[in-house]
Design a protein around this nucleic acid. Structure first.
Lengths: 135, 135
DNA sequence: TTTTAATCAGAATAAAAAATCTGATATCAA
DNA sequence: TTGATATCAGATTTTTTATTCTGATTAAAA
């Protein structure tokens, strides 16, 4: 809705990985079939999460991915920066302007509030009922 | 941001048409050059706005489009229904779920509030400072 | 009656986003 | 050392969204 697919998927992936306890490594295939995201696409996202330091990857048989940070150490803002556009922070919700700060319409304040919440949230704040979410 | 281009453009078009006083008919070209939307695309949108009864169209030389309703008679909801997807009303903001109503995350309440404001707004509520917006 | 300027409808194209494929490399275990 | 199973990197393809084109019709004015 408000993010592109990559950002959206990254949230799901990280919440899922945080949820599954006691694993050594989860392969892209494991995660893919659990949360229904195309395996190849998911692999790409995991690669970037690896480079960014959120997960560790191990190649070869028995390999896969391992979370390096817990939900409360991963901010939504970081995922937006990684996968989405910088415009996210300035663009008007409705799309009337490229610089929303000067908008004064009735939805503006609501949008600013929501954005502030979102930007200062970590995954722990977001997940709430993740078993439902990930179905 | 939250709407597709067609919905976004339709808001701009209607606000602009409401703003320009004392015209008989505005052609697609007039509007296009005023608010910087590709003429052909804009024409398509005007056609649908015509079918929907928001504007009247007149063919031939000297023709163009004429607003039939004022800003406060046009609800954002109607434009969403006309140009955007039904999913708008149920989809989770972050995209975690197709049915946001069961989400309980920290942004949920903010999102529901914003959506309520948006859905019950008309163009008069939105426009505020439209000369800025339309630049 | 011919020229000009407009909408209309649908087709075609282009651009952007999402998804998939391919070949290489790494690792473990038989 | 070979086979199976992973990631990795980049290229390619598909799908969706946005834009443009084309030919037809309409209407006013020269």
């Amino acid at each position: 809705m408000i993010f592109n697919k990559s950002t959206e998927y990254s949230v799901k992936i990280l919440i899922y990985m945080n949820e599954v306890k006691g694993y050594k490594y989860l392969s892209a295939g494991d995660i893919s079939s659990a949360i229904k995201i195309p395996k190849e696409y998911l692999s790409k996202i995991l690669q970037r999460l690896t480079h960014r330091g959120f997960v560790y990857s191990k190649r070869g048989k028995g390999g896969g991915f391992k979370l390096l940070k817990s939900n409360n150490e991963i901010e939504i803002k970081e995922l937006i920066n990684l996968f989405d556009s910088e415009k996210f922070y300035t663009k008007c919700l409705i799309g009337l302007s490229d610089d929303c700060n000067q908008c004064k319409c009735s939805v503006h304040n609501h949008w600013v509030n929501l954005k502030n919440v979102l930007v200062s949230s970590n995954l722990e704040n977001i997940k709430s009922d993740s078993f439902f979410i990930l179905k």
